[in-house]
Design a protein around this nucleic acid. Structure first.
Lengths: 217, 217, 217, 217
DNA sequence: AATGAATGAGATTTCATTCAT
DNA sequence: AATGAATGAAATCTCATTCAT
């Protein structure tokens, strides 16, 4: 047998990498610093991972990004397909981030942060941007049912995408900064309330009509 | 040899650096690329600036950050001190980013972007975070006058700070992505509407009272 | 102007690399050793070449390999198409390596050596082997006209290919070891005499012709 | 723990090393790959050998190189001391590589290959070159008896040495590439025929004897 | 004795900074 | 003042060698 159980070290390396990637970003994190934080040597990291990229893949597998996308889409569809927000189960109301998605976000904080805000230099560099755009198109579909008069414009397209990206980033940072689970969840609910209140106000002002009774997702 | 006025070259270097820092971030920008874009040589950059950090200081002087902070604070105070939003001059209504601050943002897009979103690796790395926190404390003071029942909680503190940072970031990205002045301004107005609508909704829900007639800054 | 003419340094680097690649092989040569021999620093080598591979390409461009192949083929065709060796011009007689090919070999000794014997780790790793096989097939075509009874066998195929590769290698080494041009040329002629005498003997013995009267050990 | 006889493991390690050194060369072979092929661990290799060099010594002991040298010399002396080639025993005739030497070559292919062609980076790096020179001096002695007019010249010295080295290398490659014993032996005979025919031709031409009637390309 | 994880020196490559011209 | 070649420190990655189990 070897002197330390392999799996133990591997986990320590992945944890160290996740922490540092989330804290400083992929590019600014050196393999040496990961090794140091994991309590091992630079060379040894390469016993477990083929290289820095492979280490990143272990921290943030493609499947994770897929899940985030899928779960988010599912939430939007669920919220949007309800004829009226009042039909939604009480605690799901207004919340894009709820259910399984919320669980994942809380359980895998660092991954969410990296995916949404620290992926510079990786294949997910554009994820937040692309995802923001996708969210906008999903959300616009829903919004048009409530406010059919909402016009199209480049500025609006940009603003919505920025708003969604900002929302996602905020979620990521909440997960990052609030180690206690209930606090993180509370913050997410506040952020979502803000996000949706903002969208409602935005669409209402564009439609020049009165604020709708029920809010956008 | 050449009697090119020093100031001319210096400005070209600063402009090139501002552009590249804003586009790729401080760390990812090489001095060589700045020199190339400025149409001069690497070595010559060091005739004008002591090093990469000094170049950054020239692009984004402490005074600029101070101005952003001061002008923003002034706006918040102005909005908050009005007994009623209806007292505000018409076109300033609801807008944190307006007046001189808006002018500066539009005129010096790149600096704002760098300050709020591309400062990784510089002494402003935490600016957005700290600034977000400051905005929160200013805004909370105002909010408490309108919704005295709003409780204090770490989650709320964090959420507000995140919301403000997200707002600032969105502004930065709007400035970055929309080169046309009217579009950038339109996007900023939409972002501000969203931001303030969101805050109103957030405070209202916390106060469990009805949404107020007039919105928070 | 810079402190040293660029072209001068570039040439020194290429020359140093050519020397070391030829002496120790590509893989065993470090960029640092090339830089040292060129009288410069490791980092500076990268001002002139994108990397070790690019440096190799500069030392041994694809075109050089193509020329060696083409000129050799042309010689074999020229020799083989003569109905009788006695028809060949006096000084071309017997010589695969003559004319332009000989010139290139003498003028670019190190490149020939690298191509034929020190290319491990580069895209020319298999050049000598492939080239040997090609030479065999060209030469066998000619040989069958002179000795139609020559049989086919794996051992013969292998032996011919080895003989040709050995011949090429010898040429390379002659070029390497004999700095004086007349000596190198003299050695090449001797090597060619040996090579061709050996082939004649080989084919003759296979054709069951008489063994020559005299034999060297 | 395990009471596997030490000698068994040792042999497996040496065999694995011999195979890999012959296939890829000393420098390109990693100790880990040797261990893997031997079905043991890297660490354990160091229980049997002080290091990579010691492992090489075990694969290719000085005695082996000495034997190759001695047996070859003996063959040359035997061939050279016969007043006439016709006095030699039939199957030894013309063959430098025959008898015990041939046996050793066939039985210990890998070692011969390493010694003659894959010793880059070891103390035998120059063996082939030195050995070629030695062969030349032995052979020249013999040749002068048959062709007393053969002149001395640096080019001739070099050419002979190259020819011998090429011959040795070819033998090594035949041993490498032809796993079947009869084929390897057949190839060796063909290579030897070529080698000796070439020498005869070479000496004859130097002695101003007539060119042979037929010539290969 | 055996394992394979761990180490650290060295290789390639990048880039802020310096320096000769 | 201007140039861009030169330098050297640091990052990624490999591998011979050591060591805890």
């Amino acid at each position: 047998m070897a002197q330390v159980p392999k799996e133990h070290v591997r986990r320590r390396i992945v944890a160290a990498a996740a922490h540092l990637f989330a804290a400083r970003g992929y590019a600014a994190t050196t393999v040496a610093s990961v090794a140091a934080r994991a309590g091992t040597s630079t060379g040894n990291v390469y016993k477990y991972f083929a290289g820095k990229e492979a280490l990143f893949d272990a921290v943030l597998p493609e499947a994770f990004a897929r899940d985030v996308r899928r779960l988010t889409h599912a939430r939007i569809v669920a919220l949007g397909s309800a004829r009226d927000v009042r039909e939604l189960p009480r605690d799901a109301r207004y919340h894009v981030v709820a259910g399984e998605l919320l669980e994942r976000c809380l359980a895998e904080r660092e991954r969410v942060v990296i995916l949404l805000a620290r992926a510079e230099g990786t294949r997910f560099a554009r994820f937040a941007e692309d995802f923001g755009r996708a969210l906008v198109s999903w959300a616009l579909g829903y919004a048009r049912r409530a406010w059919p008069e909402v016009p199209r414009s480049p500025a609006l397209g940009f603003a919505l995408s920025a708003v969604y990206r900002g929302y996602l980033r905020s979620l990521a940072e909440a997960l990052m900064s609030l180690p206690s689970r209930p606090r993180a969840q509370a913050a997410i609910e506040l952020l979502t309330t803000h996000h949706q209140g903002g969208l409602a106000q935005l669409f209402a002002s564009l439609a020049r009509g009165p604020a709708p009774r029920e809010l956008a997702p």
